[in-house]
């Protein structure tokens, strides 16, 4: 209910280890609260749409540029090896597999963690330390539903979209590079590229993107929501949001790849 931190009395093990478990528990409670509040009406549509726009709009340019460059560079770098074996025809599908399976989800997620995660951390952090969140609370508004549910949901929904967009742009980049060397039509390229991608690849990519989006949303909202110590806390919330999100994304990447490869 209240967003104010209160100090614990006596450490059970040591203050540091206790702190770790307390934070862990706090985050679990935070996530549980997210699911409890997310499915209860009324939905804050206005703020949700605004956040989707923020997530999409803030990252779109970067996602486009990095996606395109990834496609071009990956194609450039793979060509010599493939041409040694005389199979440059595999380029489109090689690129598509690399992009969909590995690159697009990671690139989109890291860009969002850096760009959106830090801005959510800073925005909520400054609302917290200037008592704007308490101000919502006292005017009988549920700030968790208005601020947290909308942001986490927007991140979770927009990241998969950005990821697929990033994959598409990556393939476009690859096409431009391929097209510069040999005459291939766009349609033939894409036919070739996506022939090798299975339903499982799409499912894996989608699962990753949803999980990464949720992670970034929860981590940065949690950091902002619990910011303390004035303006210093705001910078810290923004900073820690990015670092922790990126760290968790890599850990999740490893786990998901293992899980889905065992299915494959």
């Amino acid at each position: 209910m209240s967003s104010t931190n209160e100090k614990q009395d006596k450490p059970v093990i040591t203050a540091k280890i206790d702190g770790f478990f307390i934070t862990f528990y706090d985050i679990a409670v935070f996530i549980a609260r997210f699911f409890r509040e997310a499915f209860r009406p009324p939905v804050e549509w206005g703020e949700f749409v605004r956040q989707c726009y923020q997530v999409g709009y803030k990252s779109l340019a970067l996602v486009t540029v990095t996606g395109f460059i990834t496609g071009v560079v990956f194609t450039e770098q793979s060509r010599p090896t493939l041409s040694e074996f005389g199979v440059t025809a595999w380029l489109p599908s090689l690129v598509a597999i690399a992009v969909v399976r590995a690159l697009a989800p990671l690139i989109a997620a890291l860009i969002c963690a850096g760009k959106v995660g830090s801005s959510i951390g800073a925005e909520l952090g400054s609302m917290k330390v200037t008592e704007q969140i308490d101000a919502m609370e006292v005017s009988a508004i549920n700030p968790f539903r208005y601020l947290i549910v909308t942001r986490v949901t927007a991140m979770t929904i927009c990241l998969p979209l950005l990821m697929f967009y990033n994959a598409l742009i990556g393939c476009m980049g690859s096409y431009f590079d391929v097209h510069a060397h040999e005459q291939t039509s766009l349609i033939a390229f894409f036919d070739n590229a996506f022939a090798q991608i299975t339903f499982l690849d799409y499912t894996t990519a989608l699962t990753k993107a949803i999980l990464y989006g949720f992670t970034i949303g929860i981590v940065s909202c949690y950091q902002g929501w619990n910011a303390t110590q004035g303006t210093m806390g705001v910078g810290k919330a923004a900073n820690v949001s990015v670092i922790v999100s990126m760290f968790l994304i890599f850990i999740e990447e490893v786990i998901i790849v293992h899980v889905f490869n065992s299915i494959r």
Partner: peptide, 18 residues
């Protein structure tokens, strides 16, 4: 929440939504 509708709170820092 119902009670808070009947109680106004003016913050020391004003706490306006900036």
């Amino acid at each position: 929440r119902a009670l808070r509708l009947k109680v106004g709170f003016s913050f020391q820092s004003s706490a306006l939504y900036d």
